[in-house]
């Protein structure tokens, strides 16, 4: 299965878009398996350095995870002041505390003003989140986390050692 919308400047990325390896995750901030993947991907990023570009797109399954959509809203609100990845990390490190009060607190700590917090609470970023979700469905995303490696679906083992070994072979 291939990615229909390539990773590009519109995406949230860590690393250079022209890195030899581009890993994309479709993720949900409240999904426990995404929480596991968060730590695994951090380890892979540490080992691969600049040869890896990591991108994140939203795929909240709101009926299963009641706080996922709102958490994604806050990540987008943080992105408007250049703090997407800090919020991404805070959310995955606090998956058990994603209620509105906690989200607002994380936002304030990252320097989001009251208007941005209100904006996230009001669902002002839902369009972007829905676009990510729809694009994911079109690319065959069927649950989270869902990974694409250089544009191809990756369903193999996620342990850092496996991913690192495979990525080094790709270099």
């Amino acid at each position: 299965m291939s990615l229909r919308t390539p990773v590009g400047p519109h995406d949230h990325v860590q690393g250079a878009l022209d890195a030899p390896i581009v890993l994309l995750e479709y993720g949900d901030f409240e999904c426990p398996y995404c929480g596991e993947a968060y730590a695994e991907i951090k380890a892979v990023q540490g080992a691969m350095g600049p040869s890896l570009c990591f991108a994140f797109r939203h795929f909240p399954l709101s009926n299963a995870h009641p706080h996922a959509e709102r958490a994604a809203e806050f990540a987008e609100a943080a992105a408007t002041i250049g703090r997407f990845w800090e919020m991404h990390d805070i959310l995955y490190e606090n998956q058990r505390a994603l209620d509105d009060r906690s989200l607002s607190r994380y936002a304030t700590e990252l320097g989001l003003d009251d208007a941005l917090v209100a904006s996230a609470l009001g669902g002002n970023f839902s369009e972007r989140i829905r676009r990510d979700f729809q694009g994911g469905v079109r690319s065959g995303v069927n649950g989270t986390p869902c990974l694409f490696l250089n544009g191809e679906r990756y369903d193999g083992p996620r342990e850092p050692e496996s991913l690192i070994t495979m990525m080094r072979r790709m270099l």
């Binding site: 979700f133 069927n142 649950g143």
Partner: peptide, 13 residues
Amino acid sequence: GDQVTLYNEMLPT
């Protein structure tokens, strides 16, 4: 479970 959760999420679509 994953499959029906996905379709449920896609009801607006």
